[in-house]
Design a protein around this nucleic acid. Structure first.
Lengths: 130, 130
DNA sequence: ATATCAGTTTAGAATGATTCTAAAGTGTTG
DNA sequence: CAACACTTTAGAATCATTCTAAACTGATAT
């Protein structure tokens, strides 16, 4: 709880009731993949009714501060991943699940980066099914 | 023109005026990345006014038949790629561009595939900037 | 403590890509 | 060329996400 407040403070985010609830859920030690919708549902189950706008705001605040990874896998829902380490994913569009691949994946054979550009990150998505 | 009709017929797609126009543009030999919007704009420049609904329908028909690859990179626009070979991409969200990586990229170190699942495709996206 | 104010939350409206509807149009086949 | 299944289309509908502007609250100075 105090560590959650610390976490927020150290990212220049006021530890408001809503942020504390959301951060406590997200950063409980178990890696999670959430969408705004799924997070809202999950918190509602726990009797924490936080407006969707705030959930969106908060997910983005956390993302902007590197507390979450953002994954755009299907056009109609954005996933946020509490595991911010360098890692990749198995993704099943059919079953709507995401599994972290924490193993050391190596991508070999990349051509040179386009002029005046820098690589921000390399994302490997292993699509299942279809 | 007749090859375009053949292409459509061989995919059980009636060679309608609209599909011929769209296919002629997309499959002119130069690999392209389009969104429904960009395609509509591009065709409009050429005086081909095709309804957006048809453009969406057609892109999906082509995609369903493997004539296009689909790329969901940002949540608010889906890209279609006329290069259907196995390949990967450089992507700049900032500048909204996509460059094919046709070189042979190898992904090493994948863990085993989740039970009862099969790998459909592996997608490597090299995000630039940010 | 308390006033003050910038930072937050929120309901509800707005946005915008995409999909749906159902009516009119058009290839195809016999 | 008749007949029908497949297509196209305008416009409405959908739905995740963002915006707005008003009410609220954590932090800071007094």
């Amino acid at each position: 709880m105090n560590d959650i407040k610390q976490l927020l403070r150290s990212n220049a985010l006021r530890p408001t009731k809503q942020r504390i609830v959301i951060a406590s859920y997200l950063f409980d030690g178990n890696d999670k993949h959430v969408t705004a919708e799924s997070l809202s549902t999950e918190l509602a189950k726990r009797k924490h009714l936080i407006s969707l706008a705030t959930i969106y705001n908060t997910l983005h605040d956390f993302y902007e501060n590197g507390l979450l990874k953002k994954l755009t896998l299907s056009a109609d829902r954005v996933y946020f991943d509490t595991n911010t380490d360098d890692h990749h994913h198995f993704y099943s569009e059919k079953d709507q699940f995401l599994i972290d691949i924490n193993k050391n994946i190596k991508v070999n054979g990349l051509p040179k980066t386009p002029k005046n550009k820098k690589i921000n990150k390399i994302e490997v998505i292993v699509h299942l099914d279809k």
